[in-house]
Amino acid sequence: MSFEPKIVSFLCNWCSYTGADLAGTSRMKYAANIRIIRVMCSGRVDPTFVLKAFREGADGVLICGCHPGDCHYHEGNYKCLRRYKLLTKYIKQMGIDDKRLRLEWISASEGKQFAELANEMAETLRNLGPANIKDKLDFFQKTKSVNEDENVEKEKMEAI
């Protein structure tokens, strides 16, 4: 069977989540790879969430917010944009392809655009192949726990 990527998606409540709902009510068909998590504003998307998603085995992460100037909270999407730029640099350094993380603007009326985006991202990730982050980290953790003593960990923590 061909590789089907898993995409975790953070959608803001006012524009993008509504847009995704519209794709549903308009019965637009798109790939089933995407799983949506609702946040009130794209500004709420903490970098930790993105890293956590990769850590848990996501092959891609999609963040959607209101178009610039249309944010329900005035400027949350700009905050998100800034974090996204930094985060892209960061994940690159970690060895994650920056195509795996995307930020897009989807308004409440753009059901069609959301469906197209979901398909497009799934296709990109299919071509990139699996991210394998979870497997690597799980393996690393296992070897670490064999080699290092729990006390060493504790000492380190205390030092910090």
Partner: peptide
């Protein structure tokens, strides 16, 4: 208004 920007 609970946007959560501060939280992140």
């Amino acid at each position: 208004k609970g946007c959560g920007t501060c939280g992140s």
